[in-house]
């Protein structure tokens, strides 16, 4: 075995160990920390599989944004009181969950092992047709040109998640703002992050969006970075979570799917098919759609983290 192979096996074992730690951790917070580490390790695995786009997404969404979502949910569960402690899952539930997971994992492993050699791939065709889109990154071409309908539906799933979070608001708070993300009087270190990291992060986010056309990157990763920057600003209390009935917030939330649908419909007139792009204009249209998806993602994730409205609608 070469050194790289040994490192790969070590990495795989580490991922498994951290996964076990995620399940075995006694406290919610410990489990979430393990989960974040798991996501970062998984990102390295994707890099080793030469899939930098997936690695970026895993690090930004799988590890970062999901991590903060879980931390905030954990904190809310804790403040919800010990009442839920009585409803702790029993041994039988644990066992059936374990059996189900084992079954799914075995089935997946079986499928992977049963794949024909070489495994079926559309990569050569994608590589060949890439020039028609004007893009340099085949992953972006797959997401926005060839499988654009799937990508649009993904954004609609994000919106559904927002609807789900908002729908648990009590009636008297409806239209108001979620609770602030951070404590009053934020510490100096937090203010430093807010003042230095946020401008840099916005720059990096826009850069990752822009290079996504030709290199690893794109709206999803960039959106996650921008979302993180907005969350830092809210945690440092430089701005508060917006009211759920504010028009600009709702426009930002729906802008991505809306522009996507309009562009898809325009394709019927301009190129003869739903979601077809006219020759030569594919790249500008794709970037235009992606820009609004970036906005939707950057708005949706912090709204999900901020949670349902907790303060009544007021001035």
């Amino acid at each position: 075995m070469s050194v790289l192979q040994i490192l790969d096996v070590g990495l795989a074992l580490l991922v498994l160990a951290v996964a076990v730690w995620t399940i075995a951790a006694r406290e919610i917070f410990g489990a979430v920390v393990a989960y974040v580490a798991y996501g970062l390790l998984l990102a390295i695995v994707w890099i080793r599989l030469f899939a930098p786009d997936v690695a970026l997404t895993e690090a930004a969404i799988g590890s970062g944004v999901t991590g903060i979502l879980l931390v905030t949910s954990g904190a809310r569960l804790k403040s919800a009181g010990k009442a839920s402690a009585a409803a702790k899952p029993g041994l039988s539930l644990h066992l059936s969950a374990a059996a189900l997971s084992l079954l799914a994992a075995t089935a997946l492993a079986g499928v992977i092992l049963a794949l024909p050699e070489p495994s079926p791939t559309l990569a050569p065709e994608a590589r060949q047709e890439l020039a028609a889109t004007g893009l340099g990154n085949p992953v972006t071409a797959v997401l926005i040109a060839w499988r654009s309908f799937d990508t649009m539906l993904e954004k609609i799933v994000l919106l559904l998640a927002v609807v789900g979070v908002w729908s648990v608001a009590s009636d008297r708070f409806w239209g108001g703002a979620p609770a602030p993300l951070g404590r009053a009087n934020p510490q100096g270190a937090l203010l430093l992050l807010e003042q230095t990291l946020v401008p840099l992060g916005i720059l990096v986010g826009v850069h990752i969006f822009w290079v996504g056309a030709n290199a690893p990157g794109g709206a999803f990763q960039a959106g996650a970075i921008l979302a993180a920057m907005w969350m830092i600003v809210m945690i440092a209390r430089a701005s508060e979570p917006p009211r759920v009935n504010s028009l600009w917030l709702r426009l930002a939330l729906i802008s991505g799917p809306a522009v996507f649908i309009v562009a898809g419909l325009a394709g019927i007139g301009m190129a003869g098919n739903f979601f077809a792009y006219p020759d030569g204009f594919a790249k500008p249209i794709i970037l235009f759609i992606e820009a609004f998806m970036l906005l939707t993602i950057a708005a949706t994730l912090p709204v999900l983290v901020a949670g349902p409205p907790r303060r009544s609608f007021g001035p």
Binding site: Q187, G188, A189, L190, L192, L193, T196, L197, L200
Partner: peptide, 16 residues
């Protein structure tokens, strides 16, 4: 530089 910044800031936050 970014790791320095975030590392120093998060170490401060955890310490506090």
């Amino acid at each position: 530089a970014l790791v320095l910044l975030s590392g120093a800031a998060s170490a401060q936050l955890i310490g506090r």
